[in-house]
């Protein structure tokens, strides 16, 4: 699996405005919604589901990266969005550091392995420090997608 298989290019948010966890999740999900990723689904309901998941433990995995996610019954395929916070957001990460790079993932409830593979793919790609630095230096959604894709193919 590659990140480009599920990251919605047009929904990428190169500069998140939000300054807290709920704001980031809202901004990313609203972007997916504007780009037609959710049909007949109330985006507020998905926001609640992702926030509920965060209450069980932060998805901030350290090194300035977070992968907020949930499985949601109203979607029939895996979708994801990439967002960059230029100033960093406190996300309750394991290492206590702010998060700059977010990849939010929503999966159908009946595909647990696809969900695991998506999280694995994101983690494998973002383990690469030079990539994370390069992503943070991008200023447009297209640059971010190209940069991510280049590393994702390796």
């Amino acid at each position: 699996m590659r990140m480009s298989d599920f990251i919605v290019r047009s929904a990428i948010v190169p500069e998140l405005n939000a300054t807290d966890k709920e704001g980031v999740i809202r901004e990313l999900l609203e972007s997916l919604c504007r780009n037609g990723c959710f049909k007949d689904v109330d985006v507020e309901d998905i926001i609640k589901a992702v926030l509920k998941r965060e209450l069980l433990g932060s998805t901030g995995i350290g090194d300035g990266i977070a992968i907020p996610h949930t499985k949601y019954s109203g979607v029939d395929k895996l979708v994801g969005v990439l967002g960059i916070s230029p100033s960093g957001v406190s996300f309750g990460s394991r290492d206590g550091e702010p998060v700059f790079v977010f990849v939010l993932i929503i999966s159908p409830v009946d595909q647990p392995v696809v969900h695991l593979r998506a999280l694995e793919t994101v983690s494998r790609v973002l383990r690469d420090d030079p990539l994370v630095k390069a992503l943070r230096a991008c200023t447009t959604a297209d640059q971010l997608f190209e940069q991510m894709n280049q590393y994702s193919k390796m």
Binding site: I61, G62, D63, I67, R94, P112, V113, L116, R117, L119, E120, S123, R124, R127
Partner: peptide, 12 residues
């Protein structure tokens, strides 16, 4: 390492 374990996509 959480980062390393994230690479273990072991299903049921």
């Amino acid at each position: 390492s959480m980062f390393e374990l994230m690479l273990v996509a072991a299903g049921e």
